[in-house]
Amino acid sequence: MSNKPVALTIAGSDSGGGAGIQADLKSMEANGVFGTSVITAITAQNTTAVTDAQPVALDLISAQLEAVLSDFPVAAIKTGMLATADIIERVANELEQRDGYPLVVDPVMISKSGYELLDPDAVATLRNRLLPLATVITPNLHEAGHLLNTTVRTEADMRQAARSLFKMGPNAVLVKGGHLAATDDALDVLYDGSTFHAVRAPRIDTPHTHGTGCTYASAIAAHLAHQRTLPVAVRHAKSYVTNAIAHALPLGSGHGPTNHFFHLTPFTESASLGVDSDVA
């Protein structure tokens, strides 16, 4: 029997491969777990824009969850794009019936190009139904501000936002400061209701950051699946996503994707074992 942990992502699909389900599965595998998925929406997107999106039928979402959780020893779950209030409600109901999984909630709301990935009328449902189930939520500055109907611009704002979001029910809050202005470090603030942890890494000067939020949250879920504590999981995930950004791929004509497998060497013939072929 395999001793490789299993994680589950519940999120939307990115046709460009840099974010969403595609990024989640890459990130999970790169952090040592087997990734499974429940697709909540299909998007048409690339490195420049999201041009269309279509939610998946609720019963099919439930069927995917049942198929995965009834067969795989899932050790952690991550949610991303949930698109509508009805989908959030369905996912929350399903997870409540299957209590006990560490849950990372990435409150995906808007794409880098400005496309709304969460219906405006679904924000209240996200606050009331999903956040209270979370082991940790991982909003960026915009998402934290949107959840709180305020503006988050400074480190002091981040700490206050973390306190306020914690009151909505999650076990912990990670406010990501990648969009903080004029800072040398990429600072994130982790709050568990009593203690703040400042998680810092060098700021990488690159436009190629497509999918960083998905990648980061999925890496946290992967390390929780390894049964690491939340602060340790966040630290490992932060190091991973920083390196993935540092080795980002300048693909497409917009924001290129992070490099999820930066640590792998390119395939060479010498790396191929046990293959006998007459192909020249």
Score class of each variant (00 low, 15 high):
45 Q>P: 03
55 P>G: 09
123 V>L: 14
197 H>T: 12
55 P>L: 02
89 E>S: 14
144 A>W: 02
211 G>F: 03
31 N>M: 09
1 M>V: 02
59 D>N: 14
92 A>Q: 01
92 A>H: 04
239 S>V: 10
105 V>M: 00
50 V>N: 10
235 R>K: 13
148 L>H: 00
78 K>P: 00
51 T>V: 12
237 A>T: 00
142 H>C: 04
81 M>V: 05
169 G>E: 09
29 E>S: 15
29 E>T: 15
87 I>H: 03
170 P>E: 11
234 V>F: 01
127 R>E: 14
103 L>W: 09
26 K>S: 10
41 A>S: 15
170 P>L: 08
125 T>D: 06
209 T>Y: 04
10 I>D: 08
138 T>E: 04
178 G>I: 02
251 L>D: 04
176 K>N: 08
100 G>S: 07
202 P>Y: 04
62 S>A: 14
132 P>Y: 00
136 V>E: 12
53 A>V: 07
195 T>Q: 13
62 S>G: 12
61 I>M: 01
29 E>K: 11
11 A>K: 02
209 T>I: 10
122 A>W: 04
170 P>I: 10
112 K>N: 15
214 C>K: 07
19 A>T: 04
66 E>V: 04
72 F>N: 06
32 G>W: 04
6 V>W: 15
32 G>R: 01
127 R>D: 11
202 P>E: 14
21 I>E: 14
99 D>I: 05
218 S>H: 04
161 A>M: 08
105 V>R: 02
15 S>Q: 07
132 P>W: 01
260 H>E: 10
145 G>R: 01
118 L>A: 00
66 E>T: 13
54 Q>C: 15
15 S>W: 03
39 I>A: 08
245 I>P: 10
264 L>E: 14
59 D>R: 05
25 L>Q: 05
122 A>H: 07
156 A>E: 15
153 R>V: 03
76 A>Q: 13
34 F>C: 13
219 A>Y: 01
181 A>S: 11
18 G>E: 03
240 Y>I: 05
79 T>L: 09
64 Q>A: 05
123 V>S: 03
118 L>S: 03
210 H>V: 08
126 L>E: 01
150 T>D: 09
61 I>V: 15
277 S>C: 06
27 S>V: 06
141 L>M: 08
102 P>N: 05
114 G>Y: 10
19 A>E: 13
61 I>D: 11
76 A>H: 14
231 P>N: 07
75 A>T: 01
49 A>S: 13
17 G>C: 11
250 P>F: 11
19 A>H: 12
31 N>I: 05
66 E>G: 06
187 L>T: 15
267 F>T: 14
28 M>G: 03
172 A>R: 04
58 L>M: 02
141 L>I: 01
107 P>M: 07
63 A>F: 08
252 G>R: 11
140 N>P: 02
42 I>M: 14
16 G>Q: 07
138 T>W: 00
3 N>E: 15
